[in-house]
Design a binder for these strands. Structure first.
Lengths: 188, 188
DNA sequence: TCCATTATTGATTGATCATTCCAGAAAACA
DNA sequence: TGTTTTCTGGAATGATCAATCAATAATGGA
């Protein structure tokens, strides 16, 4: 008796993420979602409520995973600056796929408080670690002590956004690499 | 005999731009457009064809005006670095309103060749002037000669994007100011 | 003044949208 | 095995969408 679907909530959510990050919320239909998630329409509504709740959950999960990956790399090296470099390198490597976080902010700005709250929470968690690591790098003499660690962290994230949108606009790997290099140059 | 509407194509197009930059293409209905443009629905279709053609025209006009403003500031000072600073300062000041160029790239990526061509053309025009001015600044000893002028220009534009999305995500003026300052720090 | 152009308005089309209902198939559990 | 839960797929709902139509009114130039 062949087993059929194996409905794994996290797996189908990842499929939804893939659609949303490419087409945005308004550009995605439930038809696209059920096809990509490979589940029945009714299962989607039973499991996730409605399209907006699913979107919010997708953004939440995406942000959590993205934050986790960034933190892992930031903390993954003895030398703090190397951790920062790793984080930027990953961004350059993965810039081929659109970022759901950036898309979401771009599409909705501050107009949906529930969404804003999600972004804010993820941002806070990541920023805390980034600031911590920037301070370490400053102590090690790798980042200019004249700069505010928070400002440096914000700057890195703004440049991550810049790199991702440059990629979405068609920039090649070498250009993204150069952007990352110049961003690091600013803080050393 | 009171004159009624005075249908000025550029004026109503500006109204369309205001809607599109805030809500994106998919998030904008023709109902929103006719209300904002203050024209009849049929006039919209007669004058602009359809929603997509109107959007493309809006992006084109917006890009042209944005490019013009950037070039004016870039070239507006004897010292090249001051021109670059003015450009960045304007971006920080105006970051409260969403950028239609950024939104458009974020929403559609490379999926619409006609749109991509528009962005590419505007980019090229602006980048040419920026590179020219970066070279001048390098000759004047204001920007590190070790850097490729093209890379510096790309970096500035990526940071403009980063600043604009940071603002759309809720960053305050002082934070945007700091981002701009750090971007300039990278190239000096 | 008359005429052609241009804009408005409301009704209407057909498509697509998100969402729900329902009947039946499969899976999990007993 | 039988029973209950879970998932599916199609049909239907009502809303909204972009776009067109036709009739009317206002405009600008002759």
């Amino acid at each position: 008796m062949a087993r059929i679907k194996e409905f794994d909530k996290e797996e189908v959510l990842d499929a939804a993420i893939a659609v949303f990050r490419e087409h945005g919320f308004e550009g995605t239909s439930t038809e696209m979602l059920v096809r990509a998630m490979n589940i029945g329409r009714q299962s989607l509504y039973d499991t996730f409520g409605d399209k907006w709740k699913l979107y919010r959950l997708a953004v939440e999960r995406y942000s959590a995973e993205e934050t986790r990956a960034h933190i892992e790399l930031l903390r993954g090296t003895p030398r703090a600056l190397d951790g920062i470099r790793s984080m930027m390198a990953r961004v350059v490597e993965n810039a081929g796929q659109a970022c759901l976080g950036v898309n979401s902010i771009c599409e909705f700005g501050q107009s949906r408080p529930d969404l804003t709250a999600l972004h804010h929470a993820a941002d806070l968690r990541l920023k805390k670690v980034a600031i911590e690591r920037v301070r370490e790098a400053q102590d090690a003499g790798d980042i200019a002590v004249s700069l505010s660690a928070e400002a440096v962290a914000d700057f890195l994230f703004a440049n991550i956004t810049g790199i991702r949108i440059a990629a979405r606009g068609g920039a090649g790997p070498e250009q993204l690499q150069s952007l990352s290099g110049l961003a690091l140059r600013a803080i050393i």
